[in-house]
Simulated assay, not measured.
Amino acid sequence: MTSLQTRAAEVARAYAPHEHRPLRGYLVAMGAFGALTAGLAAAVRLGGRQVPERPAAADLLLLSVATHKLSRLLAKDSVTSPLRAPFTRYAEPAGSAEINEEVRDEGSEVRHGIGELILCPFCLALWVATGLTGGLVLAPRLTRLVATVLTATAVSDFLQMAYSIAKEKAE
Rank of each mutant, 00 (worst) to 15 (best):
Arg72Cys: 13
Gln50Pro: 05
Val51Thr: 03
Tyr90Ile: 10
Glu171Met: 15
Glu98Trp: 12
Arg84Leu: 01
Ala41Tyr: 02
Ala162Lys: 14
Glu102Arg: 11
Arg7Val: 06
Leu27Ala: 08
Ala16Lys: 04
Ala35Cys: 08
Ala94Pro: 03
Glu168Val: 07
Ala85Val: 07
Ala58Gly: 04
Ile99Leu: 11
Met161Lys: 12
Thr143Phe: 02
Leu70Asn: 00
Gln50Trp: 14
Thr133Cys: 06
Ser156Trp: 13
Lys76Phe: 09
His20Phe: 07
Val146Gly: 05
Val11Asn: 12
Ala16Gly: 05
Leu119Glu: 10
Leu70Ser: 00
Gly47Phe: 06
Ala56Glu: 04
Ile118Met: 05
Ala66Trp: 11
Pro52Val: 04
Ala125Lys: 02
Val79Asp: 14
Ala57Gln: 12
Asp59Met: 05
Arg7Leu: 13
His68Gln: 06
Gly47Asn: 11
Met30Leu: 15
Pro22Tyr: 06
Ala97Glu: 11
Ala42Trp: 01
Arg49Glu: 14
Leu117Gly: 01
Ala94Phe: 13
Met161Ala: 15
Leu63Asn: 00
Ala56Phe: 09
Leu63Ser: 01
Val146Thr: 11
Val149Gln: 02
Ala43Thr: 13
Met30Cys: 10
Val11Tyr: 12
Ala94His: 10
Pro93Asn: 15
Ser81Leu: 15
Pro55Arg: 08
His112Gly: 08
Glu168Gly: 11
Thr6Met: 11
Thr151Trp: 03
Ala97Asn: 04
Val65Gln: 00
Gly25Arg: 03
Leu142Glu: 07
Pro86Thr: 01
Leu40Met: 08
Gln160Val: 07
Glu109Tyr: 03
Gly131Leu: 07
Gln50Glu: 14
Val51Gly: 05
Asp59Tyr: 02
Leu138Cys: 09
Phe122Arg: 10
Val44Pro: 00
Met30Asn: 10
Ala162Phe: 08
Ala42Tyr: 09
Pro86Val: 09
Pro140Leu: 09
Arg54Trp: 06
Pro140Ser: 12
Pro121Val: 01
Leu46Asp: 15
Ile99Ala: 04
Ala75Gly: 06
Leu117Cys: 02
Thr80Gly: 10
